[in-house]
């Protein structure tokens, strides 16, 4: 075969090879995903860490533009705040010791202690800005899958609230999914009425619209009166996440039960307290010891 026929055969062969390559890559993607994810996370880590270092350097250098008296005042305020936090910590340690002793006397399982690892954002996808990001700490500092991640409360830099949980970890980085991600399934408790539910436990997706961003709390029992504005904290159902960490405010029930429905639960919306748009510093809570999850007492 000569001329155009050979040319078309050549083109068809080329397209067939291209098609096989594309479909092969797509089909085997989930097998290679972890490997390439690790390559990206660890190979590019030193290069992608450079902008973070440059930003921190710039941030430190801009402090030099402030007047010495202003810096001295800020330093004194920070010292006073540190002393206050240190004394609060001393009281908390005393309470912790007392709790440990009481648990021992009552023969209850010991509560697990946590380490606090500070981290910064290493990488972020603009298309998933509020749902997911990567931090610059990994399993080399003890971060594990499921560890809770805290950040400053919106408008109050002193109060730490739950921002998300660790989804996957590499040596130097960890992938965090926020409360707005449908994969972040966390137990939660309404602080005032004491009712527990599960964040992202069902199929209803979190919402981001003109009135703000909301995550969904599922499996709230029917028959309770739920007040909008009630604070929501972690339930402590997971061994990695301690109870009582602020999550946000309850906004209201969605899709209430109709008269003919026989469902035993309702779903509600929570407005996360974390400012997910502007995160800089984060704290990751990691368990001190890898204890086996306590067995339920029946």
């Amino acid at each position: 075969m000569t001329g155009p026929g050979k040319k078309y055969r050549h083109l068809a062969g080329m397209l067939a090879i291209a098609g096989v390559l594309i479909l092969g890559a797509a089909a085997t993607f989930h097998g290679f995903e972890t490997f390439f994810g690790r390559v990206y996370a660890d190979f590019f880590y030193p290069y992608l860490e450079l902008p973070v270092k440059a930003k921190n350097l710039l941030s430190a250098q801009t402090l030099m533009f402030h007047e010495k008296s202003a810096l001295a005042t800020a330093l004194n305020e920070l010292r006073a705040k540190n002393q206050l936090l240190a004394s609060r910590y001393a009281v908390a340690v005393e309470a912790q010791l007392e709790n440990r002793e009481l648990r021992r006397l009552l023969k209850l399982d010991q509560k697990l202690d946590f380490n606090y690892v500070n981290a910064e954002i290493h990488r972020r996808d603009p298309l998933e800005w509020r749902e997911r990001f990567i931090i610059n700490r990994g399993f080399s500092v003890g971060i594990k899958v499921g560890s809770p991640v805290l950040t400053a409360k919106r408008g109050e830099s002193d109060v730490m609230v739950l921002c998300g949980i660790v989804k996957s970890v590499s040596r130097h980085t960890a992938e965090i999914i926020t409360l707005l991600s449908p994969d972040a399934k966390i137990s939660a408790r309404l602080a005032e009425c004491g009712v527990s539910g599960f964040i992202n436990g069902g199929d209803i997706a979190s919402r981001h619209n003109q009135s703000g961003e909301f995550t969904v709390i599922n499996y709230l029992p029917t028959g309770n009166s739920y007040k909008p504005g009630e604070s929501v904290v972690t339930g402590g159902f997971e061994t990695h996440i301690p109870a009582g960490i602020p999550i946000g405010n309850f906004t209201g029930i969605i899709g209430e039960n109709s008269v003919f429905s026989n469902r035993l639960y309702v779903n509600g919306l929570i407005n996360p307290a974390a400012d997910l748009d502007n995160i800089r510093f984060l704290i990751v809570l990691t368990r001190k010891q890898d204890a086996v999850a306590p067995s339920p007492k029946l």
């Binding site: 080329m14 291209a18 995903e33 390439f36 390559v39 990206y40």
Partner: peptide, 21 residues
Amino acid sequence: NIIRTLFYALLCGILADAASG
């Protein structure tokens, strides 16, 4: 050429998808 480019395009695609989760 197309096959070489396709190879690199697939490599970049896998990397981008793996990185973005």
